[in-house]
């Protein structure tokens, strides 16, 4: 347990992550994740077209960009939930091309989802225990011989309870996850990700839909991941949060990386301003899903 779990107004930023000038696709001193020429198209639409990107180890990196920039698609590609048309990418020096999602997770790259995927009709404790790796009792033939897995299961339970206590969810351990609030589910999902001792945690919009009262606690938990030696990559719309905790920011627009750099400097990059303005000149920022409206318009226009 590190001491900086308590809310800190100014988290310690990690600096000196990159080599040379900060810019799209710049080299990092110690990258944990490298992607090269990753492309993914849906029909005629290019969702992701990333030439080169590196994610620095041991730091908190934010992935930002306007709606429809391809952030979630990139997440899905990196974690094996979607297959790119072309490209290669590696995690910790091991190639991830054609590696199914569950193997990516076993390699230590754990993700969460934009819409929380807490397993609603499992108890909070069962949700946690499911996160542990290498369980003997998960084999069908050993599962009905409890003496084979009981001891390991008890250890997993102890670890789960410890993490739950840290996330202040221990009092809810026997409740169904369905009964938790939106913010608590986000916490549970993050806590569950920790059960497998990951090296890289990828959080897809951890703050979306979270009650403001819980935001601070969530932020602290993200910072805590770093202090425990994990690398964090997260997608977020909340610029306040990005500036507050991110050590590095990667900006995407229309499927490409348009800027990279220090969170305070990158926001002044004209490319970033363009990206945001370009995509939103005819809609309220963040309220309407412009991409889908376009698709619908296209659909109706096409037929005329």
């Amino acid at each position: 347990m590190s001491s900086n779990v308590t809310p800190t107004s100014t988290p310690v930023k990690t600096t000196g992550l990159h080599v040379g000038d900060a810019g799209p696709g710049c080299r990092k001193v110690d990258p944990i994740l490298i992607a090269d020429n990753v492309r993914r198209t849906f029909g005629g639409l290019t969702a992701v077209d990333v030439e080169h990107v590196e994610v620095p180890r041991g730091a908190i990196t934010a992935l930002i960009g306007p709606n429809g920039a391809g952030k979630t698609t990139l997440f899905n590609l990196l974690t094996g939930f979607d297959k790119p048309d072309s490209g290669k990418w590696e995690f910790d020096g091991r190639s991830l091309a054609h590696v199914p999602a569950y193997r990516v997770a076993r390699m230590g790259l754990i993700r969460t989802f934009q819409l929380t995927k807490s397993l609603a009709l499992l108890t909070v404790l069962d949700n946690m225990k499911l996160g542990a790796k290498g369980q003997i009792g998960e084999n069908l033939f050993r599962s009905f011989l409890p003496f084979l897995w009981r001891k390991q299961d008890d250890e997993i339970e102890a670890k789960a309870l410890e993490i739950l206590a840290r996330f202040k969810l221990d009092t809810k351990k026997d409740d169904y996850a369905a009964s938790l609030s939106g913010g608590q589910r986000k916490l549970l999902e993050m806590a569950r990700a920790l059960m497998s001792d990951p090296t890289l945690v990828m959080l897809d919009e951890p703050m979306a839909g979270v009650n403001p009262a819980l935001t601070q606690s969530l932020l602290d938990h993200v910072l805590d991941l770093k202090s425990k030696g994990m690398t964090v990559l997260f997608v977020e719309h909340d610029m306040h949060m990005v500036r507050h905790i991110a050590d590095w920011v990667i900006v995407m627009a229309e499927g490409k990386i348009v800027a990279e750099g220090d969170p305070h400097l990158v926001m002044q990059d004209p490319a970033v301003i363009d990206a945001y303005l370009g995509a939103h000149h005819d809609a309220d920022i963040g309220t309407t899903d412009t991409e889908h409206v376009e698709v619908l318009k296209e659909l109706i226009d096409d037929e005329q």
Binding site: A101, A105, I110, T112, K117, L119, L121, L122
Partner: peptide
């Protein structure tokens, strides 16, 4: 409950 969540946990 949600097979993607379970997949993301390495199963």
């Amino acid at each position: 409950e949600d097979e993607d969540a379970v997949r993301a946990l390495g199963k």
